[in-house]
Write a protein that binds this DNA or RNA. Structure first.
Lengths: 255, 255
DNA sequence: CAGCCCACCGTGGTCTGACCACTTTTTGAA
DNA sequence: TTCAAAAAGTGGTCAGACCACGGTGGGCTG
């Protein structure tokens, strides 16, 4: 019969650090963008070695919760929530993710996001979206700046959806897709068409028409996908075998 | 004019390690479940200190790519793809995620997943789903085991969808939701109803009826949500201000 | 001989303290 | 006043020792 260990107190230092910082964030002591104490000092405070502290901070940094700047300090992440940058990339290598799958995920998520934004978006979001659309039309001949406003538009839609988790998911996928995207220097005509689609999406959101917003976003993304030749291939390679049994980590300490 | 640094060779050791292991995975030298060399030996091989190697491994472990077992060794993760365990939890603390938001994300994703599974599921998936449904009916009086088969059912649906990225997203959310779920010892009648809904979902998937599968999954999840009192509150707290400008990380090294 | 316990070994975890590298700030000379 | 050099402050790396955990096999016990 296994003894029930009561949240072992000698938990690994790493988690000690993680939980400590976590609580600092939860009780408001630490806000996004804040700088945490220097490693040497912080380590002394927590009564652990600097090495262990660094392990814990590294853990948080890997997950995108903390941002480390060599020679400056360590900060709480302040950008839009996002899972570890290399996360998708790494897991892609491990489990063989395909580009079309990433795009499919993006289309599904972002279409819903657009619908939610149409339901819940506030005036401030509408204003921000309008501004980005305007900027897009203003930078039709400036590809790199156009791209920035394009991304901002989608990011604002995410915020307007009122669901930061879905927003984080999208952000993760988008940033992974970003690299591939930069290479595709879209034609000027593509940008004009794209800008107009964004405007229509904006109107649907502002007009609180969820179904229409979703349809337009879906349409817009499929077009973008086609422009980059990332459609789903008609023929699939043999899929891996179904995992059976392997309850492994699932099984609680039950009976 | 900034000098163009050619992928500086003295890149942080951490990324050196990460990229090394990444390439080992990509070229097939390292398979899921494999054990990597002992730290001391590996560090010598890579010509770096053990501390730096550990930093890199910790990074990978934080993202769920590697699994460390004290006193045994370090392995490549072999379970279903999933983002860092504490990831959602930590980010929740940082950005104020709500339970209903997690559930909303789950409903959206998993409903689509069910539809995709109905389109693309193979016989092997159908068989596996049937088995899990049978097990669920067989364990109606055994809550903890019932839960395991419940989770397996949903996991198989994810696999059947043919999109490992969406599956990983769901897996991440589900595992974060898992803790809360264990506490809710559902009533026996709830389990019976739940099992029957799963059976219907299975039939829709097997019958290749995407729309129906989606509808049923959506219905099932909303019921589960209601059973745990995680509905979306009618009134929302004031949302954070729209982030404007902050292109920060977005801006490429353009012009 | 069968079974169990425990010392041993391999592996990851932590500590110490020194030094290196990057940024920002301060200083002092032109 | 300007700007380049130095200093200060912070994260990054290194080295080597020792601790803690888990598995294994030899030796003791029954």
């Amino acid at each position: 019969m296994p003894r029930l260990k009561t949240e072992e107190p000698n938990t690994h230092r790493t988690m000690h650090v993680v939980n400590h910082i976590r609580s600092l964030i939860e009780n408001g002591t630490l806000q996004p963008g804040d700088k945490i104490p220097p490693e040497r000092e912080f380590a002394r405070t927590l009564k652990i070695s600097r090495a262990s502290l660094r392990t814990g901070i590294g853990y948080l940094a890997a997950m995108g919760v903390m941002k480390i700047r060599h020679g400056v300090g360590t900060f709480v992440a302040d950008g839009p929530p996002e899972f570890g940058k290399a996360s998708l990339s790494l897991m892609g290598a491990l489990h063989g993710f395909q580009s079309w799958q990433m795009f499919e995920a993006r289309i599904i998520l972002e279409s819903h996001l657009a619908a939610l934004a149409a339901e819940r978006g506030k005036e401030e979001h509408h204003a921000a979206l309008a501004e980005e659309v305007a900027e897009m039309f203003a930078t039709l001949d400036d590809p790199s700046n156009y791209l920035i406003h394009d991304l901002m538009f989608h990011r604002i839609v995410s915020q307007a959806s009122g669901n930061p988790i879905l927003a984080a998911l999208i952000e993760t996928i988008t940033s992974a897709l970003y690299d591939k995207r930069r290479k595709t220097v879209e034609r000027s005509t593509d940008r004009r068409e794209s800008a107009e689609m964004h405007r229509e999406i904006y109107r649907a959101i502002r007009g609180r028409k969820p179904a229409e917003a979703r349809k337009l976003m879906d349409q817009h993304l499929r077009m973008a996908q086609a422009a980059q030749g990332m459609e789903r291939p008609s023929e699939r390679k043999p899929s891996p075998p179904v995992q059976k049994g392997k309850a492994s980590r699932l099984a609680p300490a039950a009976s």
